[in-house]
Amino acid sequence: MEFQRKVSVEWNKRLDKLVSGSQAIILRSLEEKGPQNASTLAKHLRITPGAVTSLSDKLITNGYAQRKRDSNDRRMILLEITEQGREILQLFKVEIKSVVQQFFSGLPDEDINHLIRIYQHVLMNISTKKEEKS
């Protein structure tokens, strides 16, 4: 429990100075899949469309995203990543890598490989559990 708390505090301290984790996920989704509406992003993030709107407003205020009308359906409003958003997302990715390297520095490769194997197994267990519930 203490380990998780300390990792979380350090993670947030280093990364939240750029954008929040949820904002980064939105930017990553926009970068990978192109412009999307709030409902699509909400489904992807497993949050409400209202929460997406709140996060989007912050991204727009900072110049990381913009709203635009869908060219096929002018009633539909899409969120689109800006060049500044791509730049901040790249900085976020670099910072994540730096944080992970800091957390695992000094560990022998063998231990790191064991951790990777353990995390992959736990993720598989979680995925299997989700599929059983569906």
Rank of each mutant, 00 (worst) to 15 (best):
T40F: 10
R74L: 12
Q102W: 13
A42G: 14
K133F: 06
E80K: 08
E110V: 00
S98P: 03
E87H: 15
S22G: 13
T128P: 05
D70N: 04
Q120A: 06
L79E: 01
I96S: 05
A38E: 11
T61S: 13
L55E: 04
I96R: 07
Q4V: 04
E110A: 01
L18I: 05
G21D: 11
K133R: 01
K17G: 07
L59T: 00
E131N: 07
S39G: 07
H114K: 08
W11V: 10
K13T: 01
L27S: 15
K68A: 05
Y64S: 06
K58A: 09
E80S: 01
G106H: 00
I118Q: 01
S56L: 15
S71I: 11
K133A: 12
I60Q: 04
N62K: 10
F104G: 06
Q90P: 07
F3W: 08
N72E: 03
V122E: 07
G106D: 02
K133P: 06
V100I: 15
G85Y: 00
I26R: 03
A38F: 00
R46A: 13
I116S: 01
D16R: 14
T128D: 06
D109M: 12
S134T: 06
S29N: 07
I88G: 02
Q90G: 04
Q4K: 12
S71F: 14
K129L: 14
Q4A: 07
V99P: 08
V19P: 03
A38M: 04
I25D: 14
R46Y: 14
K93C: 07
A51T: 13
S134A: 03
T48Y: 05
G63T: 08
R46F: 13
D70T: 04
D16K: 13
G106T: 03
A24V: 06
K6N: 10
Q90F: 13
M1I: 09
I116A: 12
V99L: 15
P49T: 10
E87G: 12
T61E: 10
L45I: 03
E110K: 02
N125W: 12
T40M: 09
N37S: 13
I112Y: 01
M124C: 10
Q23M: 14
L30T: 04
P49A: 01
N12L: 05
G85A: 03
N113Q: 15
L123A: 12
R28W: 15
R69C: 05
G50S: 01
Q120F: 14
S22M: 12
V19M: 02
Q23R: 09
D109L: 07
N37C: 12
T128K: 11
P35F: 15
T48E: 07
P49Q: 03
S29T: 11
I88N: 06
E87A: 14
L27A: 04
V100R: 12
L78R: 02
K33E: 08
S29W: 10
R117G: 02
D57A: 12
